[in-house]
Nucleic acid binder design. Structure first.
Lengths: 164, 164
DNA sequence: AGGAAAATATTGAATATTCAACGATTCCCG
DNA sequence: CGGGAATCGTTGAATATTCAATATTTTCCT
């Protein structure tokens, strides 16, 4: 097959070679937004790799962890806490209910609300996930340095606070 | 309709009230992975809001920015640079080709490869996006502090480097 | 009280992402 | 040289996320 055609490749007739070099704008790697995305992606990837054997995505760990305080949490609170949009959370919770990690109770004080709880099965899974997560944190602190890690956390917290 | 039934709500028969409080494990808000996700989400949301009027998602800005060095980039290089999986990048580039922001050329030296270039139309859009992004950076530096911003960037860079 | 407005969570359709498999090309090595 | 392995990018199917609309309940206001 003609690859050029199938891939929509063409020759750059619309291009004109610039007579002089453009002033190069800030490289993307210097933007805070990019650095955050890159760091987040990498750390998440590593954490996901550790969670792989439990077959649980990072978001579910967050949900379990928040619920493991034993108190009930509404879907709205939970969505904020675990950084997920409402519909996404609803569907993820559906899966977790199927897996019996978590369950819903109607809030008796406000019947619009649902109160989420963690099950015993969820609790034991959470413990395994917590130790995987802690071992990752330890690994990071190890070859990144305790001070750097602490400094970074502090700066991130303060950025998040200011950003609201 | 019976909401309890439709929402798969039930009462917590499987729960037993713990006789004593559990030792609370590290709150999720203290995990580096969570702080990164939160900061990334927030900064991205703000940047996306600024890009809204151009109708361009942040990922497309990254692509445009990388390509705006005028050199050609293979899809593989680009995927690494813009933090996107290969198939995701392919499909996003398809859209950008449709919008005439970007175009493909077959690499003459290695015909498996495709070399991506930015179009003139893409360049002018990039300039508008760059200035939106710079104004965001300025806004952050303003109420977060120049030093904190610089420190945070430095720590992120070093984390990313160590994480590989 | 009573009805409009707000809050809460879910649903369905549209959209986007991911995983696995593929086709094409190049590399490597006996 | 020749053929199996590796590389590069894309595709299609499966999965996940998002947007807008909805149902239900509560709040607010006069």
């Amino acid at each position: 097959m003609d690859q050029a055609k199938s891939l929509n490749i063409h020759h750059p007739f619309q291009q004109s070679l610039p007579a002089v070099a453009k002033s190069p704008s800030t490289p993307i790697t210097e933007h805070l937004a990019y650095l955050l995305a890159q760091a987040n992606r990498e750390i998440n990837r590593q954490l996901d790799a550790r969670f792989k054997k439990e077959g649980v995505p990072v978001e579910q760990w967050r949900i379990l962890k928040v619920l493991s305080d034993g108190k009930g949490h509404s879907m709205g609170d939970l969505a904020d806490a675990v950084l997920l949009n409402h519909p996404t959370l609803t569907k993820m919770v559906d899966r977790m209910v199927s897996d019996a990690l978590v369950y819903r109770v109607q809030d008796p004080d406000d019947r619009r609300k649902v109160v989420m709880f963690i099950s015993d099965r969820g609790k034991t899974l959470t413990q395994r996930l917590n130790s995987l997560a802690l071992s990752q944190e330890a690994h990071i602190a190890e070859n990144y340095g305790n001070k750097a890690t602490a400094d970074l956390k502090r700066l991130l917290e303060s950025l998040i606070e200011k950003a609201n």
